[in-house]
Design a protein around this nucleic acid. Structure first.
Length: 398
DNA sequence: CATCCACAGGAAGGACGGGGGT
DNA sequence: ACCCCCGTCCTTCCTGTGGATG
């Protein structure tokens, strides 16, 4: 009896597809970064003063998502640190995850070995502690701030200004910054002083083209999958889809991994084009479900109003129309509505999340408004709303 | 050519709950 | 025990605006 169980378990746990699935996960930093030799070289050159215990220039790194900015930076900094570990300390902060000034400082301090409460003290106090701590340190500190465009759009460049000013305040230059951004136009939002200070050096990461993506996928696939599980056609398709999406290597690797997972679930021996297509749908569905189900209450209600309104009118809605439907829904379940001003912001938030599209239009005599439309699969939205929120769910019956 | 629509979106601030410091 | 600070969600009040219309 136990043999049967063992057999089933082992047949379930032994993948016929993946040799090592982890190599396809987004935060895996590979040992080789093909087609980024140029950027690696530049980065090492700029950081080379560290070898002499001097502070390198600050660096600004531009490039769209999935162009290897993060991987290259992490890779180079880590390798350098392995070589000359006593001459500098580094901290990597993703400012999309660590998305408040407070938490950035808290993270930095924790990196330097201070324990910091989640919350409770003022940002100014944290800043003081940070300066004090840095002054106590001998080595140079290298701070990597990833995705700072997202952060600055949300909170402004205040901490950036203060952090870059820290060198002056301390009377000696001990901190080097590496700023990474997805948005090239973002620099214009910066205070000129921060801008000039941060971009002493610049490195640009161009998108990968389909050919390069293919090469990257191929190399990764030979390590991640068993031999002859993945055909060139499958690689080509993944590369092509990602290339269309501004050469996003992360997207391409995700696609390949999920396609592998789909194939495994189906008990297939090889990856097919069909698996890739299913993977594409699945990735999108998961993303939408995740985003929608964690939305605040009124955001869900607004979203539902958009779904209902678009169904009814069979066209895009204006902000006013959305608000009308929304207030009716709110009344039906007996909750207070938020103001139209707030709904306007919620619409923008949903747009930013890619759940809806909202375009500002001027219709002359008929005013200025937004044209709102659903941008994702309706069923997924309904499912995400109704499974997590019975109150809102009761509004959906047909 | 001025008007005026239907909002956009900035500024300031408040209620509230979660989490400190002392 | 009491005060302080934070982020989140929201309100109030506001000025700005492109172009169809009279």
């Amino acid at each position: 009896m136990s043999k049967i169980i063992d057999d089933i378990l082992s047949s379930l746990s032994r993948s016929r597809i993946f040799r090592n699935r982890e190599l396809l996960l987004p935060d895996y930093v590979p040992e080789e970064l093909p087609h980024r030799e140029e950027q690696i070289k530049r980065l090492v050159e700029i950081l080379s003063p560290l070898m002499r215990g001097e502070k390198p220039n600050n660096i600004f790194i531009y490039g769209l998502t999935g162009t290897g900015k993060t991987a290259v930076t992490k890779f180079v900094v880590k390798k350098l640190h392995e070589k000359i570990s006593n001459s500098f300390i580094y901290a990597y902060i993703n400012t999309r995850q660590t998305d408040t000034p407070y938490r950035i400082l808290a993270d930095l301090l924790e990196n330097l070995g201070s324990r910091v409460p989640f919350t409770g003290i003022s940002t100014a106090e944290l800043y003081r502690r940070f300066i004090k701590k840095v002054l106590e340190l001998k080595p140079i500190l290298v701070i990597v701030l990833d995705e700072i465009d997202a952060f600055v759009k949300k909170h402004g460049d205040d901490i950036l200004y203060r952090l870059t000013r820290a060198n002056y305040e301390m009377g000696k230059s001990k901190i080097s910054f590496i700023g990474i951004t997805n948005d090239v136009k973002f620099v214009d939002l910066l205070d000129p002083r921060v801008k000039s200070s941060l971009s002493e050096e610049e490195i640009i990461f161009p998108p990968y083209n389909a050919e390069e993506l293919e090469d990257i996928l191929k190399r990764r696939a030979t390590l991640a999958f068993y031999n002859s599980v993945v055909s060139d056609d499958v690689i080509k398709l993944c590369a092509a889809i990602a290339a269309r999406d501004h050469g996003d290597a992360r997207r391409a690797l995700d696609l390949l991994r999920v396609a592998g997972e789909v194939a495994e679930r189906e008990g297939a021996e090889k990856l097919t084009i069909e698996h890739v297509n299913k993977a594409r749908v699945e990735i999108e569905r998961d993303r939408v479900y995740e985003v929608v189900s964690t939305l605040p209450f009124h955001s869900k209600l607004v979203l539902l109003a958009i779904v209902i309104g678009v169904n009814e009118k069979k066209r895009t809605l204006t902000t006013g129309e959305v608000y009308d439907v929304y207030t009716k829904l709110a009344k039906k379940i007996g909750v207070e509505s938020v103001t139209q001003r707030r709904v306007s912001d919620i619409i923008n938030e949903l747009d930013m999340l890619g759940i809806i599209t909202a375009r500002v239009v001027n219709r002359g005599r008929y005013g200025k408004t937004k044209e709102v439309n659903l941008a994702v699969n309706e069923e997924t939205v309904i499912k995400a709303i109704s499974e997590k929120d019975s109150k809102v769910a009761s509004l959906w019956d047909r």
